[in-house]
Design a protein around this nucleic acid. Structure first.
Length: 811
RNA sequence: GCCCGGGUGGCGGAAUUGGUAGACGCGACGGACUUAAAAUCCGUUAUUCGAAAGGAUGUGGGGGUUCGAGUCCCCCCUCGGGCACCA
């Protein structure tokens, strides 16, 4: 056997795998199903190390599960709508489609070059007409089910990109892409009612399969459930009523003022009767002109204006002032609060600034803490609270006060969620058009299903000076209403690309269906995804939106599943020189060079070896030399074993030893792969390789059985991680294809060494160690201590003996 | 501020239920081969005292539980991630 010529070998096997379609999945196979999914990438043009890590991990699982007899579905596609293509179009004039498809071709080549197996027969792309047709179809279904609606909403607007930004695209008040300051702008936009599912999205996390705890926590916090009470406050001397929400009904007696948000719908009514109109108007204007960022972080100092009106505390009938302040947010709770400065730090700060009374109603009898310097938010018992005095705060008193409010028809128990509806409108070109029409007669009308897809129009200029670029195509905008045939106007917004990615894992099961988005049967048989693998940066939004989509489609009776992803693995990010890799920073490390210099297998091994896969790492190629060396050395060792002289029935001591070591490797590597501990799986392979080297130093003869076993097992063990290598040697020796094999199981009888190293401790500290037979008794061990090491056992206070491990003498 | 994770040699990182800390790899140093280099092979490599045998110290810091703690408990420092006026 010649040396490990990775370039030739890798090409050979990549051709073999694609021409023999070894991963093409027959959905109706008898074998147990395994849906293995890597997050489909945005086609940026070049694979970066984050992709390499993702697709290597995915491929390890694919190949490992194949060998374990599963019918593995492992598809790949493209998240191919989105900003970069459009920005490039604005700059260069190249059509986003052309730009995107070129990049897809390139990236696909690189994924194949990495040696990862994907069922390319199922390839899909979000921007292709036969995909976005069905995105539109699903949108219409959601619309018909009352899960999509339009409303005016202040949005983050970047004046330079001319687009709405999602909250996560706003960094420190500036646009993530161009760093222009983000301003607020009101637009009439589309939302999806994800908030209908808040409770189920939360409880679903409890029932889900194996998800990382931190991801579940992030989702939980994002959904942000809080329980409390809601009740009405009446403005005295008027018929103005408004609701407030509180999680601390136990502090109700401490309410010394109330606050409503400047955007509150009752503001008109308040203005009418307030004698402080001018100041209020001025304040509202000021609040409006502030960006959300200014309102939240720069102006830590709270501000507000007195309405000179009073509201009535429902418990005490006492009149307290009503203020307007922008620290109360319009889109959380009811947009108005009861303020209890003694027990809420925000209210406390406000009360201090405007000299409003601070009345303590909770006291901890032990600490005797008062509210002179800050709000008291911890537990205690109620004081100054009438009949509720002496009840325990938070729990007991809250319950009792809620009961009181309910009994007297003043308020209710209430649960509020932080999760807001999903704004999906984008004033951009390169996205999925929203398939709705504004008809003069009928109002908003969904496009007829048979007219789908609503195609993206061809336009000249992608720059959108005020509205969406789609509005520039008159042909696109002016249509007949599908209901009444009168003139109508199309929606010109496109959808957030998270909509595309919220159902692509469904389409993979039926990617060529031209009648419907998918056959429900396939979904019901194959979902949830058994293993979903992707970057931790998608821990919240993509996963939450996909979960919402699946639940909504279930309620539309299109599918019968509750959750899209049963097991989730989130890999850590790969940074470079401490920073996130990104095109704009110019710090992308791409794998192309390593394919040439070290080969795909060495790169795969290295990226697995460099750190536990869920940890973030800083890219550093210092160690890749090591995995290349390892492959060369293993190649050489196996070649030597193949060339060894055969003599049957001649398993000598070193033969027994290598057999045992092999079995230990099988057991350990299997465990590591099951637990996604790929770094230690690689190190086990290296240890096995070192064992082979010493074996070869010690012996010249081998039985044919042992030879077959070593070659087969080593090839199988390395195959999921370095598939070209494993395939080639297996094929050279057995003249067959390794993927037909079954995964190896350790021979339990050949796992344990007959001897072990007995550790001798004095007072728990290791003093000596000696090789003894397995099963050595305490008496024998004590005897060894006496005779070999001169330790006087009789003087010992205590002797601790752990069989097959250690003896500890306490003196 | 709140909620998650982390902190182990020069570096990346290993360590079942508490039981030999530093596996494996990189780097470095020494040697072999070579005219030379690369590649390869052999050896050394936590710190410290010692010529050596051997000893002492050591998993961010401090305390505790235990025969025994990287691992469990309490306090503190620090780094990374998420959320952040959410009533």
């Amino acid at each position: 056997m010649n040396n490990f010529d990775f370039e030739k070998i890798e090409e050979k096997w990549q051709n073999y795998w694609s021409s023999n379609k070894i991963i093409e999945c027959d959905l109706d196979s008898e074998k147990p199903k395994f849906y293995n999914l890597c997050m489909y990438p945005y086609p940026s043009g070049d694979l970066h190390m984050g992709h390499v890590r993702n697709y290597t991990i995915g491929d390890v699982i694919t190949r490992y599960k194949l060998l374990n007899g599963f019918n593995v579905l492992s598809p790949m596609g493209w998240d191919s709508f989105g900003l970069p293509a459009e920005n490039a179009a604005i700059k260069t004039g190249i059509h986003p489609r052309e730009f995107t498809e070129e990049r897809i071709t390139n990236m696909k080549d690189q994924i194949i070059r990495l040696g990862s197996l994907y069922d390319w027969e199922r390839e899909l792309a979000a921007h292709s007409e036969d995909y976005y047709k069905w995105t539109q179809y699903l949108f219409i279904k959601l619309y018909e089910a009352d899960l999509a609606y339009k409303k005016d909403a202040p949005v983050n607007w970047c004046n330079s990109c001319k687009t709405v930004l999602a909250n996560e695209q706003v960094v420190d008040g500036n646009c993530e892409r161009c760093e222009t300051e983000v301003i607020q702008k009101n637009l009439n936009q589309w939302f999806l009612k994800i908030s209908n599912y808040s409770e189920e999205l939360l409880t679903g996390l409890e029932k889900i399969g194996n998800w990382p705890e931190n991801v579940k926590t992030m989702q939980k916090n994002w959904i942000g459930k809080s329980e409390g009470a809601q009740f009405e406050l009446k403005v005295s001397g008027s018929d103005i009523l408004f609701e407030v929400f509180t999680t601390r009904p136990d502090t109700l007696f401490g309410m010394t003022f109330a606050v409503i948000s400047p955007e509150h719908e009752l503001m008109e009514n308040i203005l009418k009767i307030s004698d402080n109109k001018n100041q209020i108007k001025e304040y509202i204007e000021k609040a409006k002109s502030k960006s959300e960022f200014e309102r939240m972080s720069i102006t830590k100092e709270k501000s507000g204006v007195d309405t000179h009106l009073k509201v009535i505390n429902p418990m005490t009938n006492e009149e307290v002032p009503l203020w307007i302040a922008d620290y109360v947010l319009i889109n959380y709770g009811t947009g108005a609060i009861m303020a209890v400065p003694a027990h809420d730090q925000r209210d406390y700060d406000f009360a201090k600034k405007y000299n409003i009374e601070i009345r303590q109603v909770i006291m901890n009898k032990e600490s005797q803490k008062n509210v002179e310097i800050e709000a008291y938010v911890e537990e205690g018992v109620l004081i100054n609270s009438g009949e509720f005095n002496d009840l325990n705060s938070h729990t007991e008193a809250s319950q009792k006060i809620i009961q009181y409010l309910e009994k007297n028809k003043m308020g209710d128990k209430k649960t509020t969620f932080r999760l807001r509806d999903w704004l999906i409108s984008r004033q951009r070109y390169w996205g999925c058009p929203i398939p709705l029409i504004n008809c003069e007669e009928c109002g908003l009308v969904a496009e007829d299903i048979k007219n789908l897809p609503v195609l993206l129009p061809e336009i000249e200029n992608y720059l959108n000076t005020d509205g969406s670029p789609l509005s520039k195509s008159e042909e696109f905008v002016n249509v007949e209403c599908p209901k009444c045939n009168k003139p109508g106007l199309r929606e010109t917004d496109t959808m957030d690309t998270f909509v595309d990615s919220s159902w692509y894992f469904l389409r993979f099961l039926d990617p060529k269906n031209s009648e419907e988005p998918f056959k429900s049967k396939f979904i019901n048989d194959w979902l949830p995804v058994d293993q979903y693998i992707g970057g931790v940066e998608h821990a919240i939004l993509h996963l939450l939106y996909s979960r919402f989509f699946v639940k909504a489609l279930r309620d539309l009776k299109m599918i019968d599943v509750d959750e899209p992803f049963n097991n989730l693995f989130s890999q850590g990010m790969i940074n470079f020189e401490g920073a996130k890799m990104s095109k704009s920073k110019g710090n992308i490390v791409d794998p192309e060079g390593y394919f040439k210099s070290h080969g795909a297998d060495a790169l795969r091994l290295y990226i697995l070896f460099m750190a536990p896969p869920s940890d973030g790492v800083d890219w550093n190629d210092g160690g890749i030399e090591g995995t290349k060396r390892f492959l060369n050395k293993l190649w050489e060792n196996l070649a030597q074993i193949i060339d060894m002289k055969v003599e049957e029935n001649n398993i000598d001591e070193s033969g027994t030893e290598i057999e045992r070591q092999l079995n230990q490797s099988i057991e350990s590597i299997t465990n590591h792969l099951e637990k996604f501990e790929f770094n230690t799986a690689v190190s086990d392979l290296m240890i096995l390789n070192n064992n082979l080297s010493s074996y070869l130093n010690n012996t010249e003869l081998i039985s044919s059985d042992l030879k077959d076993q070593i070659i087969r097992d080593v090839c199988l063990l390395i195959y999921p991680l370095a598939p070209h290598f494993g395939s080639e040697i297996y094929n050279n020796y057995f003249n067959d294809e390794i993927s037909k094999e079954d995964w190896v199981k350790p021979n339990k009888e050949k796992l344990t060494n007959p001897t072990y190293e007995l550790v001798i401790q004095i007072n728990g500290k290791k003093k000596n160690a000696i090789e003894v037979d397995r099963g050595t008794t305490q008496e024998q061990a004590e005897e060894i201590c006496k005779t070999k090491f001169n330790i006087e056992i009789n003087d010992a206070k205590k002797v601790i003996f752990l069989e097959d491990k250690l003896i500890n003498i306490v003196v």
